[in-house]
Write a protein that binds this DNA or RNA. Structure first.
Lengths: 254, 254
DNA sequence: CGTAAACTTGACCCTTTTCAAAGCCCGTGG
DNA sequence: CCACGGGCTTTGAAAAGGGTCAAGTTTACG
């Protein structure tokens, strides 16, 4: 059995109780009944190719997903093509909750790598709240955590300068990936994100992102090569970004 | 009976069933049992003076609030004082949910005007999910809606220019206030927000915010005077900001 | 091995920031 | 009643951070 990764789209196990994600220490354990319910709620799994659209901006979409493996992102665009990435999605993230609220998705979701996901019918959510309050609570928990992530990104885009923004993104993504157990013995993580993604996430131009990234690499703070990111001087990066390391805690998984 | 306003801190009614907010058409109706539960869950009400701190950044806080009247905002700051306003809070908004997730508040909440709020003990939330799934679902709904608001602000701060940002903020706040029935016959709404608030919400400097605001006013797009905002040419503002008017829908209220 | 995507780098320009100072509004106190 | 002071707004001038344009280089992959 291989563990799911952020890089490739490994299909989810047939039975939720044997979900490889749950075998990590990242997620809070669920009771057998809850697993049973999630299993019955799940309508299937999908694998989506890299650089493709899972949810189209401004279009009604009646499904929820849990990202099982691979990497994706939420974004919004303006009519002239300007794009803002709202946050990156990693295994365990719940996708599509906002559509429950405003019948049309206000943001798009695109994959970066090939992604595999568990699919849930959107209209079953209310049912879940009724049948398993704990799972409903978990959904709220996940929603609040994602908002907190967007809050961070808004502070970054609104008030940090280019250097601080890049340092922030590197640190934040590395930390999230490492937490999922995706770092190798050298502390390097798979990093399929392009500079265009970084620019769009930080509200910078591609060119300036490149120059800033270059500068930080030259200063010996990090290294990106062969699709992997390694933080050489995380302390310096954290100082730059004023990165507050919140204690890790277990995250619910639906 | 006077209706709650965004300007002053009118104390909430003693009984939730007679809540003046619920008498508007903005909020989805609740059953008597739900009202009963909310009433018993509520531990009291508070009135907070203008320009004061309700929740301190990065500090544990064990309470939830529903804003009943007045105007406030969520924000984050960097050590050198740079501040980013994440979103504005208006009557009906739920405050403090994120603290349930990451035991310490990652953002501060300050009042703009005097505010009155209903107070709920944080540790009773889980209980609510269990006792009244519908209310739990409402909390999730509110969380998702707030996230969607922060998403919008991130797009604005990250990818719009100064003019577009200001147009966006004017439209968005006006719309939210008007929806609560706070617009007078001329379509003007109480607008206690300072230019510093606007600057901090948009990720601009105070000076540039002023100049941009001035330009739009000179162009005859809006007017701010005597603490009231009136949109003179909302169409032009909407065109500038690429503002998509989502249909109004009823919002849950806890 | 060739082509397209992704990354680099330099030069120039413009939007926004910073600095500085004055004007306005309003409540307080003499 | 009017002077004083603090917060908010307004304006101008100069500086800079970041955007845009253009072109070259490297990498990935069919």
């Amino acid at each position: 059995m291989h563990s799911p990764s952020a890089a490739k789209g490994v299909p989810p196990t047939a039975r939720c109780a044997e979900c490889a994600l749950r075998e990590t220490t990242c997620f809070s354990p669920a009771t057998p009944e809850e697993l049973e319910f999630v299993q019955s709620y799940r309508s299937g799994t999908v694998i989506i190719p890299p650089s493709s659209t899972l949810i189209r901006e401004r279009q009604t979409h009646e499904r929820l997903y849990t990202l099982y493996s691979g990497m994706a992102f939420r974004y919004k665009t303006l009519s002239d093509g300007r794009r803002q990435i709202l946050n990156f999605l990693l295994p365990g993230d719940l996708i599509g909750l906002q559509q429950e609220v405003c019948e049309a998705a206000q943001h798009g979701v695109d994959t970066i790598t090939e992604c595999s996901l568990c699919v849930f019918p959107g209209d079953g959510l209310w049912n879940m709240f009724r049948a398993h309050a704990r799972l409903g609570y978990s959904v709220t928990w996940l929603a609040a955590r994602e908002e907190s992530m967007v809050d961070d990104n808004l502070l970054t885009a609104g008030r940090r300068n280019a250097t601080e923004r890049v340092a922030m993104l590197l640190l934040h993504l590395h930390r999230r990936l490492a937490r999922l157990g995706l770092a190798d013995e050298n502390g390097a993580v798979t990093f399929p994100v392009t500079q265009q993604h970084i620019a769009d996430a930080l509200g910078l131009s591609l060119v300036h992102t490149n120059k800033t990234l270059r500068r930080l690499a030259l200063l010996g703070l990090h290294e990106i090569s062969a699709g992997r990111l390694r933080l050489i001087n995380p302390r310096a990066l954290a100082r730059l970004a004023e990165y507050y390391d919140r204690p890790m805690q277990q995250v619910p998984l639906v």
